[in-house]
């Protein structure tokens, strides 16, 4: 009897990047994960740094490192990640709860997918994310201007 080839269907991290004909939403999902991990990493560091204020250490006002333009740019990236992650996450919640995916229909050829139904939701959420991103960019430019100008 021929031996069965078993695949655990787990592609690992490389599977996040590319595997076949993926739709646009699949790449949003990857970006959602990457931004989530970035925010989590910053958040864990933020907890430790801000907790030091209990011992009267205010690293973000005293430390040279936190005023370096590279760190400030990193913070700007965290904010940009938050803007995307928050509104894409809200889109995922709506889809998970069955909003904006259309009503279930009989599978009659030519088949219709719910993907085209949820695209307007994606556009709306990304507009909100972009508005928030513009706020953050404005703040970043002003703070960098003050830093460079003294």
């Amino acid at each position: 009897m021929a031996e069965l080839n078993r695949y655990d269907n787990r592609l690992g991290v490389m599977g996040w990047l590319f595997k076949g004909r993926w739709g646009f939403e699949r790449y949003l999902y990857i970006l959602h994960r990457i931004t989530g991990l970035g925010i989590l990493f910053y958040f864990l560091m933020h907890i430790v740094v801000t907790s030091l204020r209990a011992f009267d250490i205010y690293l973000w006002t005293e430390g040279e490192f936190f005023h370096h333009p590279v760190f400030r740019f990193g913070e700007f990236l965290v904010f940009a990640a938050f803007a995307f992650h928050a509104f894409n996450g809200l889109r995922l919640v709506f889809v998970e709860l069955g909003f904006a995916v259309g009503k279930p229909i009989e599978p009659v050829y030519p088949y219709k997918t719910s993907l085209t139904k949820q695209r307007p939701l994606f556009v709306i959420m990304m507009i909100f994310a972009f508005i928030l991103f513009v706020f953050g960019t404005y703040e970043f430019i002003i703070s960098m201007g003050k830093m460079i100008g003294g």
Binding site: Y58, T61, F79, F135, Y138, E139, I142
Partner: peptide
């Protein structure tokens, strides 16, 4: 974010993280 880090737009003051304010 709005209260602490994006102060420039709302309060015309980006230094919402100074020691005194914290």
């Amino acid at each position: 974010f709005l209260y602490t880090h994006i102060g420039e737009l709302l309060f015309k003051e980006s230094d919402n993280i100074s020691k005194e304010l914290s």
